[in-house]
Design a binder for these strands. Structure first.
Length: 225
DNA sequence: ACCCAGGGTCATA
DNA sequence: TATGACCATGGG
């Protein structure tokens, strides 16, 4: 008998994800994400919020609502210049015009939510990533908050906060981090949804500055070795 | 005036 | 695989 798989994964209990969640929840409370009136609005918001402050996205979404354009049919049929005007406050309006149309075409071609809801999470993610303008985070936002799939969303705040805590390096590939969080937490779209909301809220409120997190309530948890 | 925000694509090496 | 340029508004 040669070396039996000595693969015990050094630290079986790297359970920092749950501890940090409890801390964040205690500090910020339930946030009830994603803020939107419909699933489709979630999807639109996920695309418009790319590298953009949410306050600016809200203005663009209000424009779409006021113009009665918050539907896939309306978006694919309107001219690019007109759509770009509505999206203007969210920034990158020319690019986002194309991205939003790309997404809506895909959405309609596949029968909309009533058909897509039956797809597996794996297939949905693969197809979403095939839409030009939809990357990992946008796809997972849509999977989690619009399709209610248990998918943990990774964003810049996640990397910043958890690398400061010493839990991760911050250089990991997107899916590596997603799988790491998902492996530590029970598979629940409610949990993942609240968690991501808390991460963003904490990032905006507390861990704003780059260099260090001095006055951070999580700093007491920096002893994970 | 400067920095950043709830990213992603494309060209290049 | 990995780096850099580019996209553009509004608030601090």
């Amino acid at each position: 008998m040669v070396n039996v798989q000595r693969k015990k994964t050094k630290s079986p209990n790297k359970k920092w994800a749950d501890k940090v969640y409890q801390k964040l929840l205690q500090q910020h409370g339930q946030l009830h994400w994603w803020p939107a009136d419909s699933r489709f609005e979630v999807m639109v918001g996920a695309i418009l919020t790319q590298n953009t402050a949410w306050s600016n996205v809200e203005k663009a979404i209000e424009n779409l609502k006021f113009a009665d354009m918050l539907s896939a049919d309306a978006i694919v049929n309107v001219s690019n210049v007109h759509l770009a005007k509505l999206l203007k406050p969210s920034g990158y309006f020319n690019i986002k015009t194309r991205r939003l149309k790309n997404f809506c075409k895909w959405y309609l071609q596949n029968g909309g939510y009533s058909c897509l809801r039956y797809w597996s999470t794996t297939k949905l993610r693969k197809e979403l990533l095939g839409v030009n303008g939809v990357g990992h985070e946008t796809a997972d936002d849509i999977l989690l908050y619009a399709f209610k799939r248990p998918v943990f969303v990774i964003d810049a705040y996640t990397r910043r906060i958890f690398s400061r805590l010493g839990c991760i390096t911050g250089e990991e590939l997107y899916d590596e981090l997603r799988v790491e969080f998902e492996s530590q937490l029970h598979k629940s779209n409610k949990l993942y949804g609240e968690y991501h909301a808390l991460v963003v809220q904490h990032g905006k409120d507390v861990c704003k500055t780059k260099p260090k997190c001095n006055d951070c309530s999580l700093s007491s948890m920096c002893e994970f070795d």
